[in-house]
């Protein structure tokens, strides 16, 4: 679905005369491969390059070196720009800055309008996607009246209305409260499961990635870890180096393990912990 090969990107700062002042390598040798239907999470601290990577996945930024393919099309292929953006939709961080029109349903229809979809079909699509993000009852409302989580769901609907194969969520929850965060993540999960849309979720909230199929961890422009959430969360100390952390329960299990309690690595929920702890206490023999 989405593939990058030796992708690198430099931010170039120029002074007023256009001379190069400084070059910062924001992405360095990125090779990732996302399969159709996957739920992929990209984790990284602020400034790790994860948003820059996201912007390469639908041709907002072009690679300095290397290549990016979306659904078999190279992103540098300008004639196919609309095709790429239609297939890989993107939702951004700030819920206020991506709703373009003044009524929810009209905003959701904005993408299909641009693609030249016939009127009748726009209405069908708008209704369907608003229902699938649970915002149908707000269709006639002004976006200004919605909560942050609701706005982000409208933004997701606006992308879904273009019938993308893949949807990239660039820190969609960074400006939301816990309730809004849960709403948005649950919506993304559901779209992935029910509609089979590939989801790429970029975030620094660890608890949001526990359900992902694959997690990439980024640090200073490089992908430094790849694996399932359980594999990633087993490496607590390494994650701390990358300015990330693990859910509290995972950290607790990790600390106890270090002190000799035989708990498995990568425990993700309190229930798992309680079960493993009970088992450790009941097991015969001393500590390992």
């Amino acid at each position: 679905m989405i593939r990058t090969k030796e992708l690198a990107f430099d931010y170039i700062r120029r002074d007023e005369e256009g001379n190069v002042e400084s070059v910062t390598r924001a992405l360095d040798d990125i090779n990732i491969n996302v399969k159709q239907g996957d739920f992929v999470a990209i984790l990284g601290a602020n400034g790790s390059g994860k948003s820059t990577l996201a912007k390469h996945l639908n041709a907002i930024l072009m690679p300095t070196e290397g290549e990016v393919w979306v659904n078999g099309i190279k992103t540098t292929d300008e004639d196919n720009l609309l095709e790429i953006r239609k297939n890989a939709g993107m939702v951004f961080q700030n819920p206020d800055n991506q709703i373009i029109l003044t009524v929810v349903e009209e905003d959701v229809g904005f993408g299909p309008e641009n693609l030249g979809v016939p009127t009748k079909e726009i209405w069908e699509r708008v209704e369907k996607v608003l229902k699938s993000v649970g915002m149908l009852e707000f269709r006639k409302d002004s976006p200004n009246k919605l909560s942050g989580g609701q706005k982000q769901r409208v933004a997701i609907a606006g992308i879904m209305a273009m019938k993308p194969k893949c949807i990239i969520l660039d820190e969609p929850t960074a400006m939301l409260d816990p309730v809004g965060r849960k709403e948005v993540i649950a919506t993304a999960r559901e779209l992935n499961k029910k509609e089979g849309v590939t989801v790429i979720l970029i975030t620094h909230y660890m608890e949001e990635v526990t359900g992902a199929d694959v997690v990439f961890v980024m640090d200073s422009g490089k992908v430094v870890m790849t694996g399932t959430p359980r594999q990633i969360f087993s490496r607590v100390d390494q994650l701390k180096q990358f300015r990330l952390d693990v859910p509290q329960v995972t950290a607790l299990a990790h600390d106890l393990r270090k002190k000799g309690v035989p708990l498995p690595e990568g425990i993700l929920t309190p229930e798992e912990f309680e079960e493993a702890f009970t088992r450790a206490c009941d097991a015969r023999g001393g500590a390992i």
């Binding site: 859910p247 509290q248 329960v249 607790l252 600390d255 309190p270 309680e274 702890f277 206490c281």
Partner: peptide, 27 residues
Amino acid sequence: QVTQITRDLANKGFEISPDCITLEEAG
């Protein structure tokens, strides 16, 4: 989460103080 865990374990019959609030304390 740690408070939830210590409370649940206390309910299951472990002799543990049920109201640990920090990671260190629960550990």
